[in-house]
Design a binder for these strands. Structure first.
Lengths: 144, 144
DNA sequence: AGAATATAGTGGCAATTGCCACTATATTAA
DNA sequence: TTAATATAGTGGCAATTGCCACTATATTCT
């Protein structure tokens, strides 16, 4: 039976779910899920940010980030410090444990992109990356 | 704050979640969720198929399709007929109620794609669609 | 034919996500 | 300054999804 990718909507769904399955199994050895890995990634990228900044950068609901951050603090990957200037916020910082897995997570994500683009030329791969970024920016800019 | 789409993984996540949010709110008036709408779409596209065929075409776990199909039967969008040649399977067919929403669902999905590609030229939009299909096919072909 | 294996579908559980209502703190307006 | 409004974060609920174990039926092998 042919797997017809007749609609971009279906293609996007498949790419999302597959890349998460790969990241989940890749990070399983560290007791991390894909969602947790992504938060570790961004916290290490910026070294210090608030939950709200993570929310905006990943374009996820703030309650989702609150739950993930709580788990990551419990498992020792991040620290929540209180922000002196604004008592409503936390400063989220990576721990040594987070820095230790950071390169591995980056590599896992790269590997997933290589998998899905293995049929493409280098030029196509770059164009794909660019168009994904353009589309995602347009999606975020929508007022829903 | 800039919304940096620095990684294709993040872009794909955002596009998946946004397109589902749009489809959910678009189909809400019919009491349908995005996941249900997608199954109605494929059932109408093929007019008659088994759950397993839906599973393979959407590249979802078979238990997910079983749950969605059960709900759609309860709400009167599809019929499950027994297959004479294979007692393990059902023949899934759309009802009139499904045909009635079919054009609307297709339009909602088109609209979502227009939203995310509104900054693109027609040529870029076509190329984006093609590269998404290539990537999704490669993802499905992986043995995980 | 009978045994081993493969396939279609179900049900339970956990993780992710979105939405909503809520609290607490900041900021703005009067 | 005080009142109105905005923002950061939490907790509950429902829907989606993936994985696993399971049953029932088909198919293949000997």
């Amino acid at each position: 039976m042919p797997y017809i990718m007749d609609s971009p909507f279906k293609s996007i769904s498949i790419l999302y779910r597959k890349s998460h399955i790969w990241l989940n199994s890749g990070c399983g050895g560290y007791g991390l899920t894909a969602a947790q890995a992504v938060v570790i990634l961004i916290v290490c990228d910026f070294e210090k940010l608030t939950q709200d900044e993570i929310t905006k950068r990943l374009s996820l609901d703030k309650s989702v980030i609150a739950k993930t951050v709580t788990k990551l603090e419990e498992s020792g990957y991040i620290l929540r410090g209180t922000n002196a200037r604004d008592k409503r916020t936390y400063d989220i910082c990576p721990t040594e444990k987070a820095w230790a897995v950071y390169p591995f997570i980056k590599e896992q994500i790269e590997e997933g992109f290589r998998r899905m683009t293995q049929q493409m030329t280098d030029a196509e791969r770059e164009e794909f990356k660019r168009l994904l970024a353009v589309a995602a920016a347009a999606a975020v800019a929508q007022e829903d």
